[in-house]
Amino acid sequence: MNEPAFTLKATGRLRRRQLVNQGMGALAAGAALLAVAVLAIVVISVGSRGAGSLNLAFFTQNQAQGFNPKGGGVLFAIVGSVVLVGIATLIALPLGVLVAVYVSELAPPRLARVARMALDISNGIPTIVIGIFVFTILVAAHGQSALAGSIALAIIMLPLIARATEEVLLLVPSSQREASLALGVSRWRTTVQVVIPSALGGILTGTTLAIARVAGETAPLLFLTSLGTSSTADANPLHPLQSLTLVIFSYSDQADPAYQSKAWAAAFTLMCFVLVTSLAAKLALARYRKKLGG
């Protein structure tokens, strides 16, 4: 056998480049690991502190009054959160879908670009600003209510839902629209009958993500629905209602460790809700994309 006249092994500069390549790869992997580690540490530390107060009563009873702050639970806050987020979703979902339909199906391209940019900007508005805005136009005149809080949350959800929906509407193949239009079906009927149904899965996952996002909002709610609330479960949206985030905020400030422990437990509950819904929504969206693409 003849020895080959060249080698395929890395030497010289190539060798150096290879080392740099490996070093940078390791650095990036380390950064990614750090991000995962932060999440894990947060989950573990919140969980371990809140575990003491996590029991059935925590989810099914209201805060015990008087001199026994250890007893009872935060049912009132859970009910409040559900009412707040529920009403916000009822407002934001239809509006968001309509906005998305306009932007992706009906608007001339230039207008669509403007609308899209507006959505992105409102998505970036600090939520406390939205809180102040709703405060000045609603609360200042009519007093605090869960409805005011829901409206603020709806304003936060709207661009999220609209953008998520628009994205899945764009995923619906244009051949589906053409098929309907070519039958002599109007633009609007086509959107309602063909485009939205095939985007429904994506719209719902987008909405779920938005819910997960606003369920953790505190700032706007502070002005709008926190004052004078009782610690008993109440579902009337016209009353000011507590929520999990407000409970975390207010209980963590208390001197009594029983309250602090409840705050941790509430934080853990909220975090689990957000994690699970986000994850489920992302998985569903991935499956849905595959279905539409294939």
Partner: peptide, 10 residues
Amino acid sequence: GMVFQKPNPF
């Protein structure tokens, strides 16, 4: 009416 290049059933 029209029939397209790629079959596009709903």
